[in-house]
């Protein structure tokens, strides 16, 4: 049945487009691809956008990271954290309890009130955190169920425009999540409410590895 349908649909589509000679290379692309900001201004714009979404942002020097992570964990007021297996051990202070995600069950992850991950990229113009769900960003579920997400983004990973991110990703990721602000809805009278299903609190540490 389906294989017949497949052929029937493709035949109809082919018949409808017989006369077309449109080439991919001819698609006009005169939009802005590369940004103009220096590293300092990029970090500044990223921070501004994250603040607009209500996310918390702190900057730190690479050497200070372990210390800043501990401080942010403590200030979060949360106690049970989950982290992907690739996160370096020095990020994980012992002021909170840790579960390392080696195929944890959804119930175990749901018990955690926070998650710590790295990021794959940041896009300053839209304040976007990109996760490709590798060893340091973890499986999709761990950055979804806990209510608090502490994300570590290196300044050198931040690009200014979305096309710059795509230019870097010449090998497309198998999985990706682009986060531009915490979960939100405006479905009731257009009133923006933070936190429907994903993490309600996003905190970002920008590591200044660019200077």
């Amino acid at each position: 049945m389906t294989s017949n349908s497949r052929q029937a649909i493709l035949d109809r589509v082919r018949a409808a487009t017989l006369a077309d000679t449109d080439r991919y290379e001819d698609v006009p692309r005169s939009y802005i691809r590369t940004g103009t900001l220096d590293s300092q201004s990029r970090v500044h714009l990223m921070t501004e956008r994250l603040h607009e979404y209500g996310a918390e942002v702190v900057e730190c020097a690479p050497a200070d990271l372990p210390h800043i992570v501990v401080r942010q964990l403590q200030q979060s007021g949360r106690h049970h954290f989950v982290a992907p297996p690739g996160v370096p051990e020095e990020w994980m202070g012992n002021s909170v309890s840790w579960l390392i995600d080696q195929n944890l069950s959804h119930e175990q992850i749901e018990q955690c009130d926070g998650v710590l991950t790295a990021a794959s990229a940041g896009v300053a113009e839209s304040g976007t955190i990109v996760l490709h769900h590798g060893p340091t960003e973890g499986r999709r579920v761990i950055s979804l169920l806990p209510d608090f997400h502490l994300c570590i983004l290196r300044a050198s990973q931040i690009v200014e425009t979305l096309p710059e991110y795509f230019a870097l990703s010449s090998d497309p990721p198998r999985l990706a999540t682009y986060i531009s602000g915490p979960s939100a809805t405006a479905d009731i009278e257009m009133t923006r409410i933070k936190g429907v299903h994903g993490p309600r609190f996003l905190s970002v540490i920008i590591v200044r590895d660019d200077s």
């Binding site: 839209s126 976007t128 769900h133 579920v141 999985l175 990706a176 999540t177 531009s180």
Partner: peptide, 19 residues
Amino acid sequence: GERLNPYNSLWSGVTAGDG
């Protein structure tokens, strides 16, 4: 009226252990 939607998800087929 947002610069990007709060969440964009992209996935390819099935990934072992994830989803």
